[in-house]
Structures are given as C-alpha cells and as structure tokens.
Design a protein around this nucleic acid. Structure first.
Lengths: 202, 202, 202, 202
DNA sequence: CATGAATGAGCGTTCATTCAT
DNA sequence: GATGAATGAACGCTCATTCAT
C-alpha cells in the first residue's frame, strides 16, 4: 500500500526530529511546535500521525528498547569468551546511553503497565525478550564455567541490568566530577566498575 | 525567637508538600499552586519562604543528601562486621528510596556545579563528605580483610554507590513485575543482588 | 490571498483595541487580557498575531509616525501661502493628538534606537523622512520671504516640532482649565499660541 | 510636638528614596518593597505614612511644582533685563528636567482635578501661583518694552510654559540623536530653540 | 490527507495592600 | 507607633490540543 509507506515515512521522521529535540532540551521543554517545525510539517499534520506528545515519547522508548534487545541478543548469541561478550555488552549499552542522553530516562523509568494501550504492551514484550536473552547469556557463562552454578538466574539478570544502568548513568552524570576529583576518565572508570560487577558473579 | 520558629515550620511544611507532589507527579507537572494548596497557604505566602520553584527542589535534594550522609556515617563508624554494616547500609538506603520515590532522581541526577549559589555548594559539600564516609567504610573492610587490598578506593566508592542505587531503584520500579514473573519479593531480591555486588569486592 | 487578508484584519483590530485601551489607561495598566477581550479574540490568538505587548505598542507608534509624515509632506508640498500651510500643519497635528490622546507619548517619547529590531529601524526612518519634509517646508518659507534667511534649519525643525507638540498636548490636558479659568476655547487658544510660535513674542 | 517632627522626618526620607528609585527605574518598576528597603523602614511602617504608592508619587509631584514656582518667582522678581531673566528661567527649568528625569512626567501629565483629595488641591494651587508669577514676569517684559503690548497675557503664559517644556523634553529625549545627526550639543540646541521661541521665526 | 486558525487552561512570579500584635 | 505575616489579584506568556475546511 502506498498509504502505509507514506504513513511510515512521516511517522519515522517525526520520531527522528522529536528524538533530537528531546535529547537537546528534554521532554518538557520541547514543544509540539518545535517537533513539527523540525519535521517540516504542520502541527496539525503531526497530530494526524501521533495523537499526543506522550505517544511520541513512548514510540521513542520503544525504539530504544529494541536497540537494547539487539545488544542483549548479540551478547547471548555471538562467539567469543564470556568475559569478552560481557564487556562488549556493557560498552554497547554505555555507547547508547552516551549517544542518547534520554536513554536512561526512557528505558529505566517506571514504565506504565497499562496493557490496554498497544504501545505499552509492545514495550513490555520487548523487555521480556531482553531479559530472556540476558538469561541465555548468563547460562552460557555458567556452561563456560565462568559464572557460579548456584546463581539464581532471573534475579541475576535484573541485578546485572540495574547495576549496569546505575553505573553508566552515574559515569555520565558525574563525568566532569570524576575527572576533576579523581583524575579518572569515564572510560577508565567504567572498565573498573564493570570488572567489579563481573567478579561478583564469578 | 518566635519568628525563626514560624519560618522553620513553614519551610518544613512546604518541603513536605512539595516532596509528596514531586513524588506523585514529577517536578514539571507539579505546580506552585499545587504545592501552596497542599501546604494550606497562599501561593504568595509560599514565595515569602521560597524564592523559586527550583529552590524548593534543591532544598529537598539537600535534605536527602543529608540523610544519605547519615547512613554512610553510620556504616563507617558503627560496630559490627563489615558484612553486617554493608547490608545495613544497603537496606537503610533502600528504605529511604522506598519512603521517597524521588530519592533516586534527586540524589543521583546531574546536580548543578554552580558553586556561586549557596545551596549548590552545600549539596556538593555533603556529597563529598558522604564519599569520604564510604571510603572510610571500604577501608575498614580492607583492614578487616573482607575487601581486596588492591582495590581502587574512590572508583569503588562511586561504583558501589551507583550500583546500589541502580539495584534499589529497579527493585522498586519493578517490584510488581518481580513478584508476578519470578515470585520473588523485593526484599529477597535485594538481598541476593546486594550479595552479588559484595562478592565482587571480596 | 485569503490568509493574508485575515491576518491583516486581525492585526488591525488588535491595534485598534490596544490604542483605545492604552489611551484610556496607559501602557502599563492595560493588560493583554484587556486587549484580547476588547478585540473579541482569546489571549492565545492575540499572541499568534503579536509576539509581545511591546510590539503592539511599537506598531501603534509606527502608525502614528506615518500619520505625522503625511501631514508634514502635505505642508511641504501643497499650494498656498507659507502661513496657511503652517496653520494647516499645526491644526492637522492637533486633530491627531486629539483623536489619539497617546499620540504625544507615542511619537515623542524616547524611542529605542536599537536598529537590529526591524520595527525600530522603520520608526527611525519614518522620523527622518518627516524631519526632511519639515525642513523642505521651512525652506519654502525662506524662499517665500516669510522665514528669516539666517535660520539654522535643522534645529528649527526640532524646535518647531517640540513646541507644537508641547502646545497641543497642554491645550488638550488643560482644555477644561483654560475654559474655566480664562474663558478661552481650546481652538482659540491654539490659534494664539501657534501665532506666537510663528511670530515670536518680541 | 515631637511626634510631628518624627513624622516629618519619616515622610521626607520616604520621599527621598522614592524619588531616587522612580527616577532610576520609573514608577511602575519601583515597588513599595524597594522604597521601604531603601528608606530603611519596614513596608508596613511605610504604609503608616503613605496610604498608597500613588500618594508618594503625588507628594513628589507637589515638591517639583514647588521648585518650578520658585524659578518662576525668581524670574518675576529678580533684577536684570527681561532677556536675561528669560534665559535664566529657561535654563533653570532645563536643569531641573535634567536632574530629575521624571520631572516632565510629573509636572506636565494631566493632573487629576479631583479637588477632594487635599494633595491635588495643593498641586493645583501651586500651579496657579506659578502661572501668576509667569504673568508678572511677562508684564515686566511689556513694561520694559521687550514684549508686544497687544499680547494676551494668560494664553501667552500657557504657551510659553508648554513650548519650553516641549523643547526641553525633546532636547533630553533626543540628545543622542541631535549629537549624532546634527552634531549639536544639547546646550547649544536649547539656546537656539529658546531664542527662536522668544523672537519667533518670522 | 493536510493544514490554518483558534483557544482553554495553565505557568511561575510579582506586588500593593491589610491586619493582628 | 512599628512591623512581620499573609494574601488576592494580576501579569505576560506558552502550549498541547481541536476542528472546520
């Protein structure tokens, strides 16, 4: 269908503009006018494609979740030692956080569990798949003998996930401070912190 | 002084109301009108005590930082084995996060480093003291032989800090999900996660 | 274009309302709400057409300056004796002052010389053209032998301008007083005053 | 009475502060808080002495009118030729306008003729006395043979008054412009303009 | 489908004024 | 007499959203 194509193109370009603006100025400070103007369409046209500002945000969240899922899948499926895949995963995520300042807020905020809204259901599903991939990844670590056999896999998934996010987000928020106060670059700090986190699982 | 008392009472009750509202709806979505109404004073009166909305937020951040500092100090100074003090610290913080859902955003978000403003200077100083207490705590762990000698203390402080926050905040955000999906209570999950984190440092 | 028409209509009617209100209550005491209400549109709609209150004022100033320019041009170009053209000019301006009580404040107050703003540049240019027309007018008086040859034209332009405004604005402000105290009608007073200005008191 | 003394001192110091502030920032932009603070009393105390902000303004207007009356009286009574006294009067007024940017607005704005308010009655009376002094001054010019015998004295008073104000106020508002455009200093311009006013352009 | 036009609801902030003590 | 405390009423301005065409 032509129509679907067109709709998709519009949808995507709105999301692109919104992403840039949300990242530059934050959700609240970005106006629908801004988004429409940057997209090159009229405000009313934008409303044809997105029923509300919130839904634009949710779409971006969804997109980000998909990126995370991809990273998790790579960690679970790709070749290489467990350690290598672990560091790869950590830094892949860190890169995304860095490239998209709103990544943290978007993927880790309390996400509405209102499953009536299609978008929230989708986001939830992607989250589940991601957990599943991380679980596979940890299991592969156990098989490789790099992770304790007695670990409780699902809590470990969540723990890993939340620690990684906590570590990355603080590394970004306090980059300046880390440099100034401890003369540690963000990258260096991250490597140390990820290492400490890993050793807890060994 | 009577007047100082009154001022303090007002200040505290504004902060209380604001805290509840910020927690329920977030900073942007909470209006000064809301805060004044919930405090039971007029908007103009509120402005007698707080020169701006931002300053209300900053005061809350400051208060939270002081609570954290207290916990850190207890961990560094109180008697008991390193492990016990560690778990005490983790759960003390978890309690605070739970009592104040905005704790995470308040204490870990990027805090202005504009040292001209008195309040930011104060917040920064409290943060420094807190780091120092955690460093003392870790050093006591080393002395006790419970933490590796070769650990890099300050990165470890930050790493510990960010992981703990990440873990707690996700535990709270996903409590319902953890129960439903893995039949794990938040408390149980937290204990496991904190344990994993600790073992990385051993 | 339909849309240009609409825009123009709105613009003009906002200016009309604002003019009446500024005249009745002054700039500061007139609120945007007042203007919108009197125009019969919502405040938000008003902001579609004027980006700020200041710009509404500036537009009115600009309009007034154009009216003055027209009068000056007529004085410089029309047929008739110098005296007749002089009195015509004076009373034309007086009529305008009367029709628009804020004329004085608008056209003679300190006008921003910030030439970056388009509107101020326009106002300045119109002022320059007006001075030029008055200069032509005075030169024609010299040619006719009705004005001293040795007069310094540009200071004379400004002097004439400011005296005429001073005279008219006081005549309007004190109309009631003139009648009551000296039994002189405004018109009669103005004729005498303009004559004195032309001939001097000596 | 002690009390009256004290009252007077307070009244005067409020007026002084207000004057400075009104001149620096204008009437609207000056708050009662500003005035009280600068006076060194509390806002509430200020209200003991002045029932409203408007009345503070009116008191200043009154004071200014008294200054004008003094100048007019000097012109009428002092020794010297008519011309000399004329220029003295003009420049005395110009000096006052310059020293007090709000002088113009204060003394020439349409003054309320609400004679119920004591202050307005006082202002009106001073205005009357001033006109009378100027009338005496012009009569002395006639006696000296420097002013036409057939002049209508009271209209001439008003005309002179309004022209002088118009000339001075434009000289101040456009000082920068006069310099830039015609390379004429304010003083030089004023002298020329006052001369033209005296002698007429014919 | 695309949009120009319009707006209601709200925002953070200010300030002249009142009043009990 | 002096004041600290409190406030109602505005203010200029913004913005997500609706709707007729």
């Amino acid at each position: 269908m032509r129509k679907d194509r067109l709709r998709e193109i519009h949808t995507l370009s709105v999301i692109m503009s919104a992403e840039e603006l949300f990242e530059a100025k934050g959700y609240e400070a970005t106006s629908i006018d801004d988004i429409a103007y940057r997209t090159g369409i009229s405000k009313s046209t934008l409303y044809v494609y997105f029923k509300s500002k919130q839904l634009i945000w949710d779409s971006i969240v969804c997109k980000y979740m998909e990126l995370l899922l991809e990273d998790a899948r790579k960690a679970a499926e790709s070749k290489g030692s467990f350690e290598n895949r672990y560091y790869k995963l950590c830094f892949d995520i860190a890169d995304k956080f860095e490239a998209h300042p709103m990544f943290y807020k978007a993927t880790l905020g309390a996400i509405s569990m209102d499953m009536d809204q299609e978008i929230y259901k989708k986001i939830y599903d992607i989250g589940e798949q991601t957990n599943e991939e991380i679980a596979r990844f940890i299991r592969s670590g156990i098989e490789e003998g790099k992770v304790r056999k007695d670990i409780d896999i699902y809590p470990a998934v969540i723990m890993m996930w939340s620690s990684i996010s906590g570590i990355i987000s603080m590394a970004i928020d306090k980059e300046e401070y880390l440099k100034m106060r401890f003369n540690t670059s963000k990258k260096e700090y991250l490597r140390k912190a990820f290492k400490m986190l890993l050793e807890g699982m060994v």
